[in-house]
């Protein structure tokens, strides 16, 4: 029960999902029995459940499945194929060079800082965007995106153990995009090639140049460390043992 004497939406939704403990369930049900407002909300939620299951679910599931499939297969596989073809031709050791010449990629603004290894050990970071219901497109140098475009990330950690993706927008505001809103980097899966990060970030209305950076490291980093490094040198951030890969685009009004 909240401070205003009612059950929160969270409690009522969890009750419907049977996700409350036995004592919490009893407490919630007792409250509902004695509170007109909460009883009304509980009844409405059950009516919505019946309506959703009877009509909405069957009507919309095919569209939802198609959308999810298109996003997950079409989005990543299409561009992975495009990017891997030149990689296969030239060889993995020349990955960075391939990125410079491959479709929708960019290197001029790349900053690779910190532990230096062979070319094959360099991590990579790519941005893709989706506008409205359209197809995904790679975000290359000088790309112009719009508010409400959704951006997604593909990385090759190249053996790095931790990853954080952050942004500094046109107003100079720092945000963590992956893990979204987190205050530190997160362990990254061990993959031999590329990894599409879960989730998408919907761009807000702040216009101007936005710089997105993937930060690869072998030890966990705090968002504060990354923010400080970017404030110290936005184009060439440095932290000991840390690899930064930068991407930049412009956000303009449609």
């Amino acid at each position: 029960m909240n401070a205003r004497g009612h059950l929160s939406s969270e409690t009522i939704d969890l009750l419907l999902l049977s996700a409350l403990s036995a004592s919490e369930t009893n407490e919630a049900k007792q409250h509902i029995d004695g509170c007109d407002d909460c009883r009304t909300r509980w009844r409405e939620l059950n009516e919505d459940k019946a309506r959703f299951e009877q009509f909405v679910f069957a009507r919309t599931l095919p569209k939802v499945e198609a959308r999810v499939l298109a996003e997950r297969q079409g989005f990543f596989e299409r561009f992975r194929l495009k990017l891997l073809l030149p990689v296969l031709a030239v060889g993995a050791a020349a990955l960075a060079v391939v990125f410079a010449t491959g479709p929708g990629t960019q290197t001029e603004d790349d900053a690779y800082v910190g532990i230096k290894g062979g070319a094959s050990s360099q991590p990579s970071f790519e941005l893709f965007a989706v506008r409205g219901q359209g197809s995904a497109f790679p975000v290359g140098p000088g790309a112009e995106l719009h508010p409400s475009d959704r951006i997604r990330f593909v990385v090759n950690p190249a053996g790095a153990k931790y990853l954080l993706v952050a942004s500094t927008d046109g107003a100079g505001v720092f945000s963590v995009y992956h893990p979204f809103g987190a205050d530190k980097s997160q362990p990254v899966a061990e993959v031999k090639s590329k990894l599409e990060l879960p989730g998408a970030v919907e761009l807000d209305n702040t216009l101007g140049a936005e710089r997105v950076v993937a930060v690869f490291s072998d030890e966990p980093l705090t968002a504060q460390q990354v923010e400080a490094a970017l404030k110290a040198d936005a184009k060439n951030p440095r932290l000991p043992g840390v690899r930064f890969v930068l991407r930049e685009f412009r956000k303009v009004a449609p």
Partner: peptide
Amino acid sequence: MAATGVHTGERVSTLYRKFGT
């Protein structure tokens, strides 16, 4: 972190049924 991969329609359907309401 969730690995890249295409989930089956069944998985999507189950989650949609569970959280759709």
